[in-house]
Design a protein around this nucleic acid. Structure first.
Lengths: 158, 158
DNA sequence: CTGCAAGTTGAAGTTCACTTCAACTCAAGG
DNA sequence: CCTTGAGTTGAAGTGAACTTCAACTTGCAG
């Protein structure tokens, strides 16, 4: 083993910008995914003279936001729309983020309500055999089951 | 409008079995999806002399279970595994279902915990700008962010 | 200055969960 | 018997979210 002191090669440079590899390592998101996000307009990067991406520190927060939103079941397209609603002034302020996330609180609340209903009814409802689909409160809770258009569906409704 | 009495053409026959169209209508799942589920071994159907599917009433419950599990973010493959764990004796009993759903309660609890954490931290965490990824409790909550293998990822972790 | 890991692009591939299509066959009312 | 709507199959298409590949180019340690 080499000397145990800090390895400087992954540390962000003095300028505070990161390469795609560094952002990937720090965010836990694959570099290919970051490029994909950029193509979709979810994140942005400056370029060096040699056309390599250099990410601002702020992009780390942006990527975190994207990942979290995804975990909540929001599609990248919807995330893009939300991010587009941020002011043009780059590097959104804390207040901007707060406004955005507040608007998603409802979605989270809805999701929790649904899953809790699911959990609370699972044993009782399926166990009791009441799952007759027409009357069962559980089943009707997630009403948006009807198909609409081709392609794969989102796992969770709405 | 014709006379308002019940239309018998969608009603299940005296035998209690359903055509694929009837099961589709009653479960809210497209017929094509039902055939797909059958290919994956998630549901089963008897056949008429002319090779048409005839579903037992019990399959309605089965389909409901599948749909609910999906809403919780469980993949069809995992659902199949769970259903395979049911006893060979066709038409599982209420106790069987209860056992199965009980084993999924944990997953539901986990999901709820995660989303609640997300919700509770969203405004505070992103708003305050603490989202430095390494320290943020919110981000670390959903740790399984690392990639593994090709293909699309599940929306929600685990 | 050289070597080589890390970066770049566009195109094509992958997985999941379906849907759509074409080309039939079945079932049942009139 | 005929027609018509519902059902059958296998193959191919779809959308989301990425990954992988090939064929280069950059950037920096030695």
């Amino acid at each position: 083993m080499t000397h145990a002191s800090a390895r400087p090669d992954v540390e962000p440079t003095v300028t505070g910008t990161m390469t795609i590899g560094q952002l990937a390592a720090r965010s836990g998101v694959a570099a290919s995914a970051l490029r994909y996000y950029e193509r979709l307009g979810l994140i942005r990067a400056d370029r060096t003279g040699g056309n390599q991406r250099r990410y601002d520190r702020a992009e780390l927060r942006q990527v975190a936001f994207i990942r979290i939103a995804q975990q909540v079941g929001i599609s990248l397209e919807e995330i893009r729309e939300a991010l587009d609603s941020l002011p043009e002034s780059r590097t959104p302020t804390a207040a901007d983020w707060a406004r955005l996330s507040a608007s998603w609180r409802n979605r989270l609340d809805e999701r929790i309500r649904l899953i809790e209903k699911l959990r609370d009814n699972l044993v009782g409802c399926i166990g009791c055999g009441c799952l007759s689909l027409e009357k069962c409160a559980l089943y009707n809770a997630g009403d948006a089951l009807g198909a609409e258009g081709p392609g794969a569906r989102l796992m969770l409704p709405r």
